[in-house]
């Protein structure tokens, strides 16, 4: 008559896109404990508006801006890159694998490649001048800064003079790599030092698991 009912927290809280932390840890710079801690964060984000255990764009924006209606070109691009399956939500595995690129121990070339895909707005394999201008305009709009159109053109033109070494009016991935190696600060935002301390920031999952185990 015995009913073996598991009460471990890891079983209770599994979301639709849950993946084995051991596998995720083997594919990313995270340890199993860090993946567990990321799950704690994931649960919080994925239930902030729609309680379905999946991160929707509004929830992602809410976490970034404290405002679910904030429209932001870059947040949209990040969301789309995290949403590898392109099904409109970020699942747990996608969340961990994508954040892995932002880990301090992740390969530099992965960070450079991710940033390139981020800025290649129309996914043509090149960053074009119009895209760069569009991104500058989005940044200015977001910051409430004003620059004249001439100034914007001048900034974009100068950047292309420096980065587009093949002078074909677009920046390819090799040119991007070379440009980043000359300006390493460009991918500073591709590293989140916080990820090294993720188990300190979200210790409750691990503590609870240990107690129940």
């Amino acid at each position: 008559m015995g009913c073996v009912c598991s009460t471990s927290s890891s079983e209770k809280v599994k979301t639709p896109g849950y993946e084995d932390p051991t596998i995720l840890a083997s594919e990313t710079p995270f340890t199993v404990s860090e993946v567990d801690a990321l799950y704690e964060l994931y649960l919080k984000l994925s239930n902030s508006i729609i309680e379905d255990g999946l991160i929707h764009k509004e929830e992602f924006q809410l976490a970034l801006f404290r405002n679910k209606n904030e429209k932001n070109l870059f947040a949209d691009r990040i969301f789309d890159l995290f949403d590898v399956k392109r099904n409109g939500v970020i699942e747990f595995g996608e969340f961990v694998r994508s954040l892995g690129v932002f880990h301090p121990n992740a390969a530099l070339e992965d960070k450079i490649a991710f940033a390139f895909r981020l800025y290649d707005l129309r996914q043509t394999g090149y960053i074009e001048k119009q895209e760069l201008k569009e991104m500058v305009l989005a940044l200015l709009h977001e910051s409430d800064l004003y620059l004249s159109d001439e100034m914007i053109e001048s900034i974009v033109d100068k950047t292309f003079e420096d980065a587009d070494t093949k002078e074909d009016g677009r920046i390819d991935e090799d040119e991007w790599k070379a440009f980043v190696s000359q300006h390493p600060s460009l991918i500073k935002n591709m590293t989140l030092p916080y990820l090294k301390d993720i188990t300190l920031a979200f210790p409750s999952f691990i503590a609870r698991t240990e107690v129940e185990d």
Binding site: A75, Y119, L132
Partner: peptide
């Protein structure tokens, strides 16, 4: 003074939308 000497990517990289550290704020 307008940052005319700043390269465009440097400017863009300052976007709040690219600042994922906000995800970890409680």
């Amino acid at each position: 003074v307008a940052p005319v000497t700043m390269n465009a990517f440097e400017l863009i990289s300052k976007s709040q939308g690219l600042n994922l550290s906000s995800l970890f704020e409680k």
